[in-house]
Amino acid sequence: MKISMTVNGKEVAREVEDRRLLVDYLRQDLGLTGTHVGCDTSQCGACVVHVDGEPVKACTMLAADAEGAQVKTIEGMAGKDGTLHAIQAAFQEHHGLQCGFCTPGMIMSAAALLKENPKPNEHEIREYLDGNICRCTGYHNIVKAIMAASGQPVAIAAE
């Protein structure tokens, strides 16, 4: 079937099998390989993108069901001139990533959190990230990065 949607501000249309998952559509049909697949049970969050402004696990949505939607992936987060989004910059500044594989999903979830709650506290950040697994960082620096990206002091009592 033919589907069309807007991805990172660009209208795209492709012929796909009905069973095409959104994540495979992004990765394989559009070549947007920043969105990752880390599990097959909708748990790890490496595939989180935004569909019509809401965070979605792209491995658990059919591409066909995104017909006409506005989709944003990690590749669409920086400005057209390459300026990093505040969350991207904060992840680098605060060493919020190591192997980088969970990072796109983590950043997309963080962006969804800050849209909903611009000044989350540490507890709210940790709760909101419950659908994103990072195996490298122990989350410490991810939490710091999101605090920083929300314009809050990152000095945390524990340090």
């Binding site: 909708s42 969050g45 989180v48 569909v51 809401e54 965070p55 979605v56 696990k57 658990t60 949505m61 979830s109 969804a112 959190l113 909101y128 419950d130 659908g131 994103n132």
Partner: peptide
Amino acid sequence: IGDAAVRSR
């Protein structure tokens, strides 16, 4: 229920 991304769908 689930997580934020699950709740969106």
